[in-house]
Nucleic acid binder design. Structure first.
Lengths: 212, 212
DNA sequence: GTATTACGCTACGAGCCGTAGCGAAAGCAC
DNA sequence: GTGCTTTCGCTACGGCTCGTAGCGTAATAC
């Protein structure tokens, strides 16, 4: 591990404590004020740093909030529950729990909205938040195939498309449920969701699961 | 149409032309500037009205953009295509087409983000945009039951939950695909989506393609 | 005609933005 | 230790947008 001066740089190193303080202050400000009323001056005051320090490290409000929110999603893990349905329900519940926090809600959606007009920002969101969680889908599918719950997908292109689709489907559903419908993504809802995902609409009224 | 003076109000009536001009100018400003750089002064100039006129009709940026975006989604219709899969694909493609427009993307997501801290705004979004489209799910399910494609749902509470779930699932998936993954919600993607919805994950590889 | 309301215009204080400039502080190389 | 380099805190600034107040004028109902 290279120390705080990675590449022979001389001079006073940047305070790592300031970084964490700023990101924490950003999340606190998101909770108290929301996206629109959040000002960088206020964040700097909360973090105990000067406003200029903040501008030296982040280009603006968008990038700062992306980094502050990204840390929230790093704790996501795929529980090994023994069945595909339980795996899905477990990880979706984790995701819903994170997304229920006010700093995640207002922050994430706001930067996504901004990213529609800023390709660099969208890439930052994808690499630091979204793409890192796609591993959960891949891992879940691999486990399900090993258990015999899902047939192996021979076509690689089709498999990739399916992974992307599942990811958009699950993440989008939780987001829409939480933010737009303003409903709780609780265990009952997650159970219904996993049932539809596994058996389809026709299977919702019937007895679920019973994998071949 | 009732004239511009609905209930015995005296005095000069509000210009209906100004309303449409303002909403159109708002959408144009969303395309040119996006949400964050959109200013009410600019919208007023584009619409050819005074800034004070704008403030007399809308409380702020949020409410204005909700109304401006809501008009985009009124054209949604459920095509009678003869099968549930085709119905789903048709209406999802319509939704995706609307959401691909820049004024819909940036405007809708931004107000949704704001609504996480403003209950009145979220209600406005739900009543003027979201809830009105839930009829599509209800109508599609009714048609599918009539065709025998879906079993009737005896439990009313369960049926309501399923409708909400399907709505969150479909709308959320299209939004996530379009905005976060930055992929095209084209015919191929929609076909995959409807297949997963109808047959579940296990069915995706077993009965592929179904080439038209 | 008269009352009432909407409209266009101007002007204003307030707040935030993003940057510049300065002196001081904190490490690194020697 | 002595320098060198970079970061830090602080202050100040022009510029922009906000949302409102005030005024005279325009348009309609009675």
């Amino acid at each position: 591990m290279q120390s705080s001066t990675p590449a022979g740089r001389a001079g006073r190193p940047r305070s790592a404590a300031a970084d964490t303080a700023i990101l924490a202050a950003t999340r606190a400000a998101l909770v108290d004020l929301g996206w629109s009323k959040l000002t960088l001056g206020d964040v700097a005051t909360r973090a105990g740093v000067a406003k200029t320090t903040l501008y030296r490290r982040w280009a603006g409000k968008n990038e700062l909030v992306v980094d502050a929110v990204a840390e929230l999603f790093d704790e996501l893990e795929l529980p090994d529950s023994g069945s595909l349905a339980a795996d899905i329900e477990g990880v979706v519940l984790q995701f819903a729990t994170i997304l229920a926090r006010p700093e995640a809600k207002s922050g994430l959606m706001a930067v996504v909205a901004e990213s529609t007009r800023d390709d660099a920002l969208r890439e930052r969101i994808r690499t630091s938040i979204v793409e890192r969680q796609k591993r959960l889908v891949l891992e879940g599918r691999a486990r399900a195939e090993a258990r015999g719950e899902l047939p192996p997908e021979p076509d690689a292109a089709q498999a990739g498309r399916t992974v992307d689709l599942i990811f958009d489907l699950v993440a989008g559903a939780v987001v829409h449920r939480t933010l737009v419908s303003a409903g709780a993504a609780d265990e009952e809802w997650v159970r219904d969701l996993s049932r539809v995902l596994l058996t389809g609409l026709a299977g919702t009224a019937q007895e679920p699961a019973t994998p071949t």
